[in-house]
Design a protein around this nucleic acid. Structure first.
Lengths: 246, 246
DNA sequence: TGTACATCAGTGAACGCGCGTTCACTGATGTAC
DNA sequence: TGTACATCAGTGAACGCGCGTTCACTGATGTAC
C-alpha cells in the first residue's frame, strides 16, 4: 500500500509541486486579506512575507513582482464578484427574468459593500503605473455576460418590451461595434438591445460606486430602498417588467 | 506718489501677506501638476518642495499636513469641473433645455478625458486613509446643482414630459430624503423628479468613469458616438426631448 | 539500489530609494511705544 | 523717528519608517544512469 504513494496524483508532479501550489495559495490568500483591509495601494510584498514568516525575497520564487501579485488579485476579485452574481441569478427561476435581473444587481451591490477594497481594486480608479494584462478580460466579462444572456433569454421567451417610440435610433458605428460583441458572445440578441444593455450595465456599476464612495451622502440616506427602486427603473429601460409581459 | 505704496491694498495686510498668498498658490499649482501627471497617491510634499526649491519643512508653514494639501486639491478639482460644467451650460440658450443637458454631459466627459487624475481624485476610489472634510461638499455639489436647476427650469417652461405610466412609484423613504434636498436647493421641482434626476446624475458619472477606466474596451470602440447617444437616452429618462415638447 | 548531478526553495544581507513630520535655529519683517 | 520686542518664513539635520528588488549562498528534493 505504501509503495503506491509515489504514484498518487502523478499529474501534480510530486510533493514539491504540491507544496508549491499550497504556498502560492497562502501568499494569495494573505495578500487578498491585506488588500481587503488596507486597499490595493498599501499592498506590500514584504508585509505579506512577514505575515507568512518567510523572507521577502522568498516570495519572488512565486511571483515575479508586486505587479504580478496584483494581477492575480485582480483576476481573483473579478472571479469572486462574477461567481456571486452567477449564483445569485441561478437562485431565481429561469422564467423570472425580472427577478434574475434584480438578483444580479443586488449581488453586485452586496459584494461592493462587503468587500469595498476588492471592488475598488477592479472598479475603482486604476492603481497608478499598473497596466492590466489580457488575462483579466475573461474574468472581467463574467458579470456583463450574465446580463447579456439574461436579455437573450428574456427576448426568446417574448418577455422583453419593445423600446419606446421616442427612443433615439442607435448610431451605425455603435451598432457595428456591438455586432462584433453579439456575434462572439450573445448570438440570440440584437445589437440595438445590447446598446441599451451596456447602458444599464454601466448604470448599475455607476450607482454602486457612487454610493460606495459617498457621493450620495446628504442626498439619499435610505440607500437600500433607493437602490431597489433604481433596479426596477433600470430593468424597465431594457424592457424588463416586474411579473413579465402580459 | 511713492509714499502711497505703503497704503496699497491695505486689506491684504502688507507684502508679507501677499508673498504668503503667492507661495501658497505656487505650492497648490505645483501639487496640482504633480497629481495631474502621476496621480494623487504619488503626491509627495517633498517632491513639491524640491520643485519649488525650498526645504520640505518650509511647506509646513503653508499646509499643516499632506492631507490638508490633498483636501485643497480636491476642492480645486471639484471647482474646476463645476466651472467647466456651468460655463458649458451657459453657452446654450436657456430655453434649449435639451441642449443644456447635452452641454453639461459633454463637459463632464471632456474634463475627465483631459484631466483623468484630477477626475479620479474626486470621482475615483478614495485615497486610503483619507477622510473628506465638510468643506468639500459645496464644491462637490456644483454639478448636481446645475443639473437640478436645469430640471427646474425645464419644468417651469412646461418642457418636461411626464414619466411613463409603467414607471414604478418612488418609495416614501426616498421621497422624504429628496424633499429635504428639494427644500434646501431646488424649490421648484418635485421630489419624484429629483429621484429620476439623481439616477441620471449617477448614470452620467458612471458612464464617464467606466469609459475612462477602460471597462468598455472591446465592447464600445466609438466612445464619442456611444456617449452622445447615451446622453440622449439619459435626457429622455428625465423627460427632456431633443427640440423640446410640442 | 546507489550515486552524481541538476534543480529548486528559502535565507539574509544589501542596494538605493523615498517618504511625512519634528525641532532647534537664524534672519528678516512687522508692530507698539 | 527710533528702538525693543514679537512674529513669522525658511533652513538643515534628524527620526523612524517602509518599500521593491537583487544576489550569492546553503541545503534539501528530485532525476538520470
Amino acid at each position: 500500500v505504501e509503495a503506491d504513494l509515489s504514484n498518487v496524483n502523478p499529474t501534480a508532479g510530486g510533493i514539491r509541486a504540491r507544496l508549491r501550489a499550497e504556498l502560492t495559495a497562502s501568499i494569495l490568500q494573505t495578500a487578498r486579506r491585506h488588500v481587503a483591509e488596507h486597499g490595493a495601494a498599501a499592498l506590500s510584498l514584504r508585509a505579506v512575507a512577514r505575515e507568512l514568516q518567510m523572507s521577502s525575497s522568498a516570495v519572488y520564487r512565486y511571483f515575479a513582482s508586486r505587479d504580478e501579485l496584483l494581477t492575480a488579485l485582480i483576476i481573483d476579485a473579478y472571479n469572486a464578484i462574477g461567481e456571486q452574481v452567477e449564483q445569485a441569478a441561478d437562485r431565481v427561476a429561469p422564467s423570472n427574468h425580472f427577478g434574475q435581473f434584480e438578483a444580479i444587481c443586488h449581488a453586485v451591490r452586496k459584494f461592493a459593500t462587503e468587500h469595498p477594497h476588492e471592488y475598488s481594486l477592479v472598479y475603482g480608479s486604476p492603481v497608478p503605473g499598473y497596466e492590466a494584462p489580457p488575462d483579466t478580460v475573461g474574468p472581467a466579462a463574467r458579470v456583463p455576460v450574465v446580463l447579456g444572456r439574461l436579455l437573450g433569454s428574456a427576448l426568446q421567451a417574448g418577455q422583453l418590451a419593445e423600446p419606446p417610440a421616442e427612443a433615439s435610433p442607435i448610431p451605425p458605428s455603435v451598432l457595428s461595434d456591438l455586432e462584433d460583441v453579439r456575434d462572439s458572445t450573445f448570438p440570440e440578441v440584437g445589437a440595438d438591445l445590447l446598446a441599451r444593455g451596456v447602458l444599464v450595465w454601466v448604470q448599475l456599476f455607476g450607482l454602486v460606486s457612487f454610493e460606495l464612495y459617498g457621493h450620495l451622502v446628504g442626498t439619499i440616506d435610505d440607500g437600500d430602498t433607493y437602490f431597489a427602486w433604481s433596479v426596477g427603473e433600470m430593468a424597465r429601460s431594457v424592457g424588463l417588467e416586474r411579473g413579465g409581459l402580459t
